[in-house]
């Protein structure tokens, strides 16, 4: 079976929240089959690496297997937090998209949800 390196966007969705200077990002697998993949590959180290240039110092990961979800608590990632950040996106609401784009994982076709736009990649 062909395996392609794709953004985790292909098999999961995400949502970001904030509390002070802490960004809180959930990563939720679309399918049951995606859960073990993100559980194995979306590590604290990987996520810290992705947000390091924004100032992140530490990542805590929490597992929610019943929801096929991971919750990342990313410290010092918000440029001081919503009340003092100079960024356009003071809450860091767009960081969920950034995680989905930057975390690259090996994907087989069966991990993709129905009608996924990523199915095209397997046709070439």
């Amino acid at each position: 079976m062909i395996k392609l390196n794709l953004p985790v966007h292909s098999i999961a969705h995400a949502r970001a929240g904030d509390k002070g200077d802490v960004s809180n990002i959930s990563l939720i697998a679309y399918l049951e089959s995606g859960w073990p993949v993100i559980e194995k590959l979306a590590t604290e180290e990987k996520v810290l690496e992705i947000f390091k240039h924004m100032g992140a110092t530490k990542v805590d990961r929490y597992k929610l297997p019943n929801l096929k979800a991971l919750n990342f608590v990313i410290h010092s990632a918000l440029g001081g937090g919503v009340n003092s950040s100079l960024r356009l996106d003071r809450h860091g609401k767009t960081l969920s998209s950034y995680l989905l784009h930057e975390l690259i994982i090996p994907v087989t076709e069966d991990l993709l949800p129905l009608k996924s736009p990523y199915l095209n990649k397997f046709k070439d």
């Binding site: 995400a14 949502r15 970001a16 960024r87 356009l88 996106d89 609401k93």
Partner: peptide, 11 residues
């Protein structure tokens, strides 16, 4: 749109 719009709108 933060709460009920397309994914990851911000700023």
């Amino acid at each position: 749109l933060y709460c009920c719009g397309p994914a990851a709108g911000g700023g």
